[in-house]
């Protein structure tokens, strides 16, 4: 197992960032929450109810949606079909009128998706695909949104845009757990943060504290290297 003795909490309406280097176990943690891992020891509580052992469809129905690493959109399917797939559990419960509203909401959030609604999702650019992945997971009307490295492979401007969307969503009452390698960006928008290192939680605190923490700066924010190369002393 990649992680051991890790504990973390996200309060309602909070935006929490989980940062750490490659292989620290961030994605494993998210997969465990979503029920995508079958055998592991531990506990997950959602709204004070244990959800460990529930299969992924059950987790989605409970109100937890994940934007997986590498986006995992369905490239041959149209943007519309991708979005509708996000609402799969809503269709099962025959909530068709709500789906239409949600589609509108996602397209207002990401107008570019409206322009490309009938295109195969594989023809979108990386940033658009990420927007689609986020839009798709919103279609399930989650209470908790998990994002696995949404900034991966995107240009800085797009990263800003995506992260700003997350802030907006949080302001509308969505609870968000954000997993990122891009520590600065992730901590800047977060309320609190956790630092995961080779399967252990090494640091936790408010995002502002973590941003100021020397250890985090050294290991994840790359500050002292910058200072070293530029010959500055702080």
């Amino acid at each position: 197992m990649a992680i051991k003795g890790v504990s973390l909490s996200v309060a309602q309406g909070e935006l929490v960032s989980l940062i750490g280097a490659n292989g620290a176990g961030k994605s494993t943690l998210l997969q465990a929450i979503c029920g995508l891992l079958s055998r592991w020891k531990g506990e997950v509580l959602f709204q004070n109810v244990p959800i460990k052992g529930i299969d992924p469809p059950g987790i989605v129905r409970k109100g937890i949606s994940m934007v997986p690493e590498g986006r995992l959109i369905f490239p041959p399917l149209s943007v519309m079909d991708n979005l509708k797939l996000g609402a799969y559990t809503m269709y099962r419960r025959k909530q068709h009128h709500q789906i239409a509203q949600d589609l509108e909401m996602v397209m207002t959030l990401f107008p570019v998706l409206k322009e490309r609604i009938h295109q195969p999702a594989g023809t979108l650019s990386g940033g658009e695909q990420q927007m689609l992945a986020i839009g798709r997971s919103l279609m399930a009307r989650p209470q908790l949104l998990l994002l696995d490295e949404p900034s991966m492979g995107l240009a800085p401007l797009l990263v800003d845009k995506i992260l700003k969307t997350l802030v907006d969503l949080r302001e509308n009452g969505l609870t968000i757990l954000l997993v990122e390698q891009n520590a600065t960006a992730a901590l800047k928008i977060a309320d609190r943060g956790y630092v995961l290192e080779t399967g252990r939680m090494v640091l936790q605190g408010t995002a502002a504290d973590l941003l100021a923490d020397e250890e985090v700066k050294r290991a994840y924010l790359g500050k002292d290297y910058e200072q070293f190369y530029e010959g500055l002393n702080s």
Binding site: C34, L36, D55, P56, P57, I59, V60, R61, M66, P68, L72, I73, F74, P75, P76, L77, L85, G86, Y88, T89, R136, A140
Partner: peptide
């Protein structure tokens, strides 16, 4: 396309 991604959508 991807069984894992489909599962993450809540598809059994």
């Amino acid at each position: 396309d991807s069984e894992n991604a489909a599962r993450a959508m809540g598809i059994n």
